[in-house]
Design a protein around this nucleic acid. Structure first.
Lengths: 195, 195
DNA sequence: CGAATGACAGATTTCAATATCTGTCATTCC
DNA sequence: GGAATGACAGATATTGAAATCTGTCATTCG
């Protein structure tokens, strides 16, 4: 049974996710996590120096799931840059919207965590912008796009579409205009990128 | 002296702004406003049916100041659409950034009010989008821009530049990259609009 | 000996009593 | 008579004492 297994960082992270899901970000305590694992809270502190470190690790895990899913689209050299850019942005929007819609409380929980872990979020955004940069650079290389600096253009595209992926705008994702707005934004940006 | 003047909605709004500036949005009460005016709070309720109505009136006033300042740029037919669009967006960003930087507490206060008065904010955004639509439509008429629907394009431009005018992003307005990011965003959007 | 425990101090949160506020309205004032 | 008042009921906010939590560490356990 669980109590006899070795206490690993991984098991603690799983328990923490569960406690966060149950109690929400404000009420989830280290004592709760220890209780869920059937150990003393001192044992948890052996693996994570502080509560903040534990929360950061959980947040990174969550962010990494999004990055990995999109990496496949960014790296798919078999399709042209415009299609990939459209798909990548659509996949990001769809994934975020689905998460926010399916389990609003868990999404709100992770939004709070993201607000605390500014550093981890910045890294995550850098990763995503990297992926976008690859797409734009490929587009420039193939003559489809024109850009003085693919990194700068990618950053501009990411920021300009913030309304469709930044959690602070989650409330506007299920309005009737959301899809039309997304389409208009992507089309305008693509026109700006085309050679 | 003030106590002998007639109690008007206008005087109440002025006093409310002052109370909000002093106490912040959470602690500003109708009783405070009445005290500042030297009247009973019952008298304030003669002019505003509820505390929410009073706050809404103050918020509208504040939002209208921004709209008016930008209307001049949008309507200046003596300059080409591209210049006007650049200037309009830059003026909006500059005005917001200045307000947020000069008096962060007052800006935060009004941000909270805006969060409460969703309807008033929606109207304000409609006004601004109207102004943008006029610029885009002029650009299309003069052959400088291309757009199937200036209203849709204007909406896309406004949303894409949200990071530079939406108060939820105020924290990013004084980073070293802000100006470069703004420049990149506007350039990309203008390339997308040009015929 | 390394992993786990639980008692502890100081920080933070909870909760219930207390105070203040919102909105109404019968009465007063000019 | 129309504008202003202030007492009032119910809703909301404040406060401070009690409970819980975070992070440490001397001690126990296997």
């Amino acid at each position: 049974m669980a109590a006899t297994e070795t206490l690993t960082a991984e098991r603690i992270l799983e328990a923490t996710e569960e406690v966060l899901r149950r109690h929400g970000p404000a009420k989830a305590t280290v004592v709760d996590v220890a209780r869920a694992l059937g150990v003393s809270h001192g044992s948890v502190y052996r693996h994570f120096r502080t509560k903040a470190a534990l929360r950061e690790a959980v947040t990174k895990r969550w962010l990494d799931r999004t990055s990995e899913a999109l990496d496949g689209i960014a790296g798919d050299a078999s399709r042209d840059a415009e299609t990939r850019l459209r798909d990548w942005l659509a996949a990001l929007f769809t994934a975020k919207r689905r998460k926010a819609g399916d389990d609003p409380e868990l999404f709100a929980t992770y939004s709070v965590l993201a607000g605390e872990q500014v550093g981890a979020v910045a890294e995550h955004i850098d990763e995503l912008t990297e992926q976008l940069t690859r797409i734009v650079a490929d587009g420039v290389a193939s003559g489809l796009f024109r850009s003085d600096d693919p990194g700068v253009s990618a950053r501009a595209v990411f920021q300009a579409t913030g309304r469709f992926h930044d959690p602070v705008h989650a409330g506007e994702w299920d309005t009737p205009e959301a899809d039309a707005d997304f389409e208009a934004a992507v089309s305008l940006l693509l026109r700006g990128l085309r050679a």
